[in-house]
């Protein structure tokens, strides 16, 4: 129960961050990606702020070893750059560039622009289900390990 409550609060904070940063607006995301147009560098500042705090959190979490509400830290341990990673990222980038929407903002927009966000989210879920048809041996499920040793 505590895990669900914390996950809800943390998800809420994530969504509020998307709204405050302006990244819930696809037009603003596209304005960042449009280098040769009227470029809006805001997304770089969102990333800088997010990565800085996330990096500090990762350091503290690793030093502490054990999370407060769970038995262990689950952090992806793979370091190899395989063709699937790059191909997946490229397909993702193509979709992101077409609409200016990625998974977080799309879900947050469900209550703001319901018809458009629901169309995108339904297709996104379909894409995720389609991925499950990829042979398991080929599908890269990143192995996770307990990663809390100081």
């Amino acid at each position: 129960m505590a895990k669900m409550a914390s996950a809800f609060a943390v998800g809420l904070l994530f969504g509020l961050g998307l709204l405050v940063s302006g990244m819930s607006d696809p037009a603003k995301v596209l304005a960042f990606l449009d280098l040769t147009g009227r470029w809006d560098p805001s997304l770089a500042f969102v990333m800088a702020g997010a990565v800085a705090v996330s990096a500090a959190g990762t350091l503290v979490a690793r030093r502490r070893g054990r999370p407060l509400l769970a038995s262990r830290l689950e952090i992806p341990a793979r370091r190899d750059i395989d063709p699937r990673l790059v191909a997946g990222a490229a397909i993702f980038g193509l979709g992101w560039g077409l609409a200016g929407l990625c998974p977080g903002p799309a879900l947050t927009l469900l209550t703001v622009a319901p018809a458009q966000a629901a169309t995108f989210v339904a297709a996104m879920v379909a894409g995720m289900l389609l991925f499950r048809l990829v042979p398991p041996a080929a599908a890269c499920s990143s192995p996770r390990r307990t990663d809390g040793v100081p």
Partner: peptide
């Protein structure tokens, strides 16, 4: 776009 984003995100972990 949603289809590509969903499939690509899972393939690319």
């Amino acid at each position: 776009a949603g289809l590509l984003v969903g499939f690509g995100a899972r393939l690319g972990s």
